[in-house]
């Protein structure tokens, strides 16, 4: 959506730059963390956490999902559910395999 008065839009513009800066900093952090000597599980967790935060900021502010219509929310919830289902694929292939050979 986004506001309609010039005042509102100028407020939005300020927010866009702040978010842009935050994304920049998070990118620096994610690269910096990758040079730390942490366990593989921890590295994956941190990298994905930061990516999710960044993605969330882009979706919420740049794609202005914070003030969107219900139909869009419903559609995205549905998509997220099926996206999660897709992630069953790797689990489904590996979970409790029947011993072969």
């Amino acid at each position: 959506m986004g506001g309609h008065t010039a005042e509102e839009i100028r407020g939005e513009i300020r927010r866009y730059w702040i978010i842009g800066l935050a994304l920049f900093l998070l990118t620096v952090i994610t690269v910096a963390v990758s040079y730390l000597d942490v366990s593989a599980g921890m590295a994956v967790f941190v990298a994905l956490l930061i990516a999710c935060i960044k993605g969330g900021l882009v979706a919420a502010v740049f794609m202005h999902l914070i003030s969107e219509r219900q139909a869009i929310y419903a559609l995205l919830i549905l998509t997220v559910v099926f996206f999660a289902v897709l992630m069953i694929v790797p689990i489904g292939t590996r979970a409790s395999p029947i011993p072969m050979g």
Binding site: I91, G92, T93, R94, A95, S96, P97, I98, M100
Partner: peptide, 9 residues
């Protein structure tokens, strides 16, 4: 079912 996929799944 016959691909060797686990019984849980």
């Amino acid at each position: 079912f016959l691909t060797g996929m686990g019984t849980t799944i």
